[in-house]
Design a binder for these strands. Structure first.
Lengths: 345, 345
DNA sequence: CTGTTAGCGCGTTCAA
DNA sequence: TTGAACGCGCTAACAG
């Protein structure tokens, strides 16, 4: 009987073994409440008892249960971060900066990878909402209708980063991909290139940058710019393949890439084929400041400052979460970008 | 009175606005418990009531509060993943694979970045433990004494990945960095190079690979191998600088790098200086399968399969968390590595 | 098949 | 300065 009853539990015996406030309290000869205060509001507890409590904490190895804490206070100290992928270096600087800034204020980051898929993002938003994050960070501004709805209803602070739009869900920090594209086009025209080509990964923002290049060129009378599109995320190998395909359509003066990684792929394939970069073909990239800074001496590129986006986003969230009740105005920041020419670098 | 009472709350009015089981239950004309069952164990609920419940869920926009659920069941469905950094591509494949495998079984990932710092890891382990994760994944096997202690006491399943050791905390999936180093050395000797150099980032495992190269070379009679060490994480720029410094000590036949990124830095600097790779200097890298697969046609490299590590780790965890109570034996897997020569590729 | 009771661990809110 | 009672939202266990 006893035997069968014990095994009836089914799940492995996850004995609730963890030390609780109560355990610490008993050892310190106080109430759970006092222990809680000693840890969170030390100034409310007499020095002596506080010491007894801290000793008890140490000797028991007590670790506060944030699940319970979050449930009781309705503050999870969790920030949900939705990112397309970490397979490309483009976001790494932003992520590192945002995470460490948040961590410094006691917030942890719950990461969700969308793979540039809106349905995935939709599902992730739903699941992550279950953790009751104190804030949500979304990459991009293009979401499913359902996602937007859910998010607009929530009172959770939301930041969309890495893009601009006229109707953000809440806060917004990013830059215009159309502006990047046309700036690239004008830069290349200014440098007197004649025969252009575009190599793009098919992620939404990369495509917008690329299309914007094409359109700006057209506005300046350049038609029929060859363009190759490869599946996201952009990889070295994709860059090599794309370059090979572009070559079949003739050697251009310059190739504009949606990302530095593709540009580097071109460098690799060019080395293999003995094509001189930038003598025979110039290459232009796009990327995060820290990774792009020294990409390759033969490369020009568009730099964006991922770290700044991460820092601004984290600070805006913290302001909203911990700041004074004075209604925090809607935030909208254009972080801009910089064109770095290999010759001027 | 009423007025002052309301503002006395201090914190911004985080009105507990979220829909609860109770709300749904009321609408569906059942108990909270029935709603819970309808969602988690549908087979225990009559089809008709189940439908009523689901309708109520939809019309209220109910999202289960996993904080409360976790507290009640002592299962958080959270996996803590401690990683040195995401600034290098070396871990990305592992992370993606692990996260998606876990996500498929309803587990979310809590990321902690240690920056290769043991104190940081120690602190992160402490904080993350507060979330009561169902499992913990650590990168590497070298932890502070305190971290080890804490982790050994916990009953939470733990996996150390990306390395091997004789006394793992719990489960272990990785490969030997000493073996990588000596294999690289033998490979290069076999290819008849004479003048060697080593370029390494100063992260612990990278250093072990590099030192192992040097030692194996010494065992074969090659002494005084020049070695440059750069701060972690490895970047393109670090590779360029390191290469420049190595050149000051004379041009070697081959340079072995602790990471592909450094190797690519060498390629960039070599291109700038007009040094032919691999004609004048051969370069050897090290990296994750998917990113290293097509690094550069001029590069040889050591491939490790990050995706496999991620998959194995996730599956081992799931097995332990959801598997049959049959005591899950200690797990230890050597995932090995492959040397890929540019000529044989 | 459904409801009731109790408790997960913590913090808010009073009272002492 | 400290304690007692209660509730956060959910689910295990048992009763019906």
């Amino acid at each position: 009987m006893d035997e069968s009853y014990r095994t009836a539990a089914g799940q492995p015996d996850q004995t609730h073994e963890s030390v609780t406030l109560e355990d610490v309290a008993r050892l310190a000869g106080v109430t759970a409440m006092t222990v809680s205060r000693a840890l969170k509001r030390p100034e409310l507890v007499r020095e002596e008892t506080r010491q007894r409590v801290l000793d008890a904490v140490r000797s028991t190895g007590y670790v506060p249960n944030m699940l319970a804490g979050a449930l009781a206070t309705n503050r999870s100290h969790l920030v949900a971060l939705l990112l397309p992928t970490i397979a490309t270096s483009i976001f790494t600087d932003m992520v590192q900066t945002m995470m460490s800034t948040l961590a410094a204020s006691g917030y942890q980051t719950l990461l969700g990878l969308t793979g540039y898929l809106r349905e995935r993002e939709e599902q992730l938003v739903h699941t992550l909402l279950g953790r009751r994050p104190d804030a949500i960070v979304l990459t991009g501004t293009d979401h499913s209708a359902l996602t937007r709805d859910r998010l607009l209803k929530t009172k959770v602070p939301i930041i969309e980063i890495w893009d601009l739009t006229d109707d953000p869900i809440d806060m917004l920090i990013g830059f215009s991909h159309e502006a990047v594209g046309s700036a690239v086009a004008r830069h290349l025209l200014h440098k007197r290139y004649r025969r252009f080509a575009v190599l793009s990964a098919d992620d939404p923002r990369g495509m917008r940058r690329s299309m914007s290049i094409v359109e700006e060129l057209r506005r300046h009378g350049v038609e029929n710019v060859p363009m190759e599109i490869l599946p996201a995320p952009a990889t070295l190998q994709a860059g090599r393949e794309g370059f090979a395909r572009l070559l079949e359509r003739g050697l251009p003066d310059v190739i504009a890439c949606s990302t530095d990684t593709l540009a580097q792929g071109i460098l690799a394939e060019a080395a293999k084929r003995g094509i001189g970069i930038p003598q025979e073909v110039a290459v232009m990239g796009f990327g995060d400041l820290s990774t792009a800074a020294h990409v390759h001496p033969a490369l020009s590129t568009v730099r964006i400052d991922g770290a700044e986006i991460g820092r601004l986003a984290a600070e805006a969230l913290l302001q909203r979460l911990e700041g004074k009740p004075s209604s925090p105005a809607a935030l909208r920041v254009d972080t801009g970008f910089t064109i770095v020419d290999r010759e001027s670098a």
